[in-house]
Simulated assay, not measured.
Amino acid sequence: MKQLIWAFGRHLNRTTENLAHVMAEEFHYEIIPFSTEVSRLRRIPAMVASVRMIRGKLKAFSSIHPWTKKQVHLPSELENIPTMVIMGSQIIGNGPHFFYQDLDVSSILRDREQGKPTFMYDDVPLSLLQKLNDMQFHEYRQAQAIFTMSDWVRTSIIKSGAIKSQDVHTVHAGSNLGAHFSSNPYAEKNLAAQTLVFVGRDFQRKGGNILLRAWPKVLQELPLAQLKIIGPYREDIGQELSPSIHVLGPLSNQQIIHEMSQCTGLVIPSLWEPYGIAFLEAMSMGLPVIGTRHMAMPEFIVPGTGYLPKPYEVDELAEAMIRLLTQTHTTWKMSRNAFLHAQAFQWSQVAAKMDRVLTSIMKN
């Protein structure tokens, strides 16, 4: 059996677990989980080095500081085993290293230098981002291959010049809902519901405030329309809401499946979205989707599966929502297209693409 270190950050998230499961069950890898988390005590030097006063509060960036990354090493008995780093780019042993990424540091740095919002990275000092970018460049040079969720980030990584284009492979991602539908479950009741659903805990980054500004324009045309918001708590939204808006908070996968099954479409007008697995999950249930023409989203929200207004454009977003809820013949066709398109985004297919590259490299 082929051994593979499965290196992840603080927590085993659903992407990390689902891909590891498929690699083990379908492609017969012995997956060896390894957390790259560094204890708070060992991060003290990085805390001291990175602390800043931001908006009247002290804030440190020890978890992403280069010094912290350098503290992570595989134990001696594992250090020569091939290593897959999930959503990161660390060299932690002597064996071949592979990275699976939805985002690279140079993309963050580029947006910051251009004055664009990067949300969770807005407060990171530019000097620290530059150090991380330099470090990632050297990590890329040592990697045997890099797997990316999107062509968008693949292009950015190739532009760095650290690794040859033939060694960077777009493999995409899959649904994390834990449900597979052999046929499109979308039905007449979905069209009749006149209900859209938003899914995402990071409400502001995912365009939640833009959505709330656009929603009254929808109600002017469709007074009975409803909007469900899954992910944030009511207090996270921080403004008065129309009775037509229902904040459901964080839900389990089964609850999300149930709520989506009652809706007409998904809307996440994200302002900064490296990928967006929630779109794939909705499409796997036949829901047409509304995203934005930004970053990786146009790669999988292809024509005929949904709408892509410009980010921040309230009127364009409102028009897209109205069209999805009123042009039922088009929406029905979009449902069929979305469901069929989603079949190309499965963890089994991601793992198969990875396995071909890994097997070729291991043989050589």
Score class of each variant (00 low, 15 high):
S284F: 11
H246R: 08
H169C: 04
Q71G: 00
Q204P: 06
K69W: 02
L129Q: 00
Q349S: 04
S182E: 09
I108S: 02
S50C: 02
G291R: 05
T170F: 04
L340D: 14
H28R: 14
V267A: 03
R323C: 11
P309H: 09
Q220N: 15
G9F: 00
K59Q: 15
F99S: 06
M285Q: 15
R141E: 10
F181V: 15
L126F: 00
N13V: 02
E273T: 07
F27D: 02
P298V: 13
A20V: 01
L325E: 09
Q327Y: 12
M260S: 07
P82L: 11
S261D: 09
A7Y: 07
M334K: 07
S335G: 11
D236L: 10
P125D: 00
T148W: 05
M53L: 15
L177E: 09
G56C: 06
I64G: 01
Y307H: 11
D102W: 01
M120Y: 02
A320I: 05
Y121P: 07
V168K: 12
F8S: 10
R42N: 01
I322F: 14
D315Y: 02
V267H: 03
S270V: 05
G88E: 06
I92M: 12
D236K: 12
D122K: 01
I158K: 12
A193N: 04
K116T: 01
G161K: 04
G95C: 11
F339W: 15
N337A: 14
A193F: 03
R293C: 10
L266W: 10
Q166I: 13
M362E: 13
L58T: 14
P75V: 12
S107W: 01
L358H: 11
W6F: 08
V168S: 11
L128F: 00
F147V: 01
A342H: 11
V314R: 09
V197D: 02
Y275G: 03
L212Y: 08
S160W: 03
A162M: 05
R43V: 00
G265F: 10
E113S: 10
L248C: 05
Q130Y: 06
H21S: 08
L308W: 11
E240R: 15
L222D: 11
K164H: 15
I268Y: 00
E235Y: 09
Q142G: 03
V171G: 03
K164N: 14
I44S: 03
L191A: 02
M149D: 01
P232V: 14
T118L: 00
Q136W: 06
Q204W: 03
K217W: 10
K159F: 09
S165D: 15
A351R: 11
L340I: 15
R293Q: 14
H246T: 02
M135C: 00
A342K: 06
S335K: 07
N133P: 02
A352R: 09
A282L: 08
I86F: 13
E316V: 04
Q71T: 01
Q254A: 15
G9H: 04
I322Q: 14
C263D: 04
R323G: 07
I146V: 12
N364P: 00
P216W: 15
R323Q: 13
T16K: 02
P125H: 00
I158Q: 12
V153D: 04
T328V: 14
R40G: 09
S270E: 02
T68G: 00
V171Q: 05
H246E: 07
A20G: 12
I32T: 12
P269M: 04
K131R: 05
V38L: 01
N94T: 15
M84Y: 08
T83I: 08
P288H: 05
P298H: 13
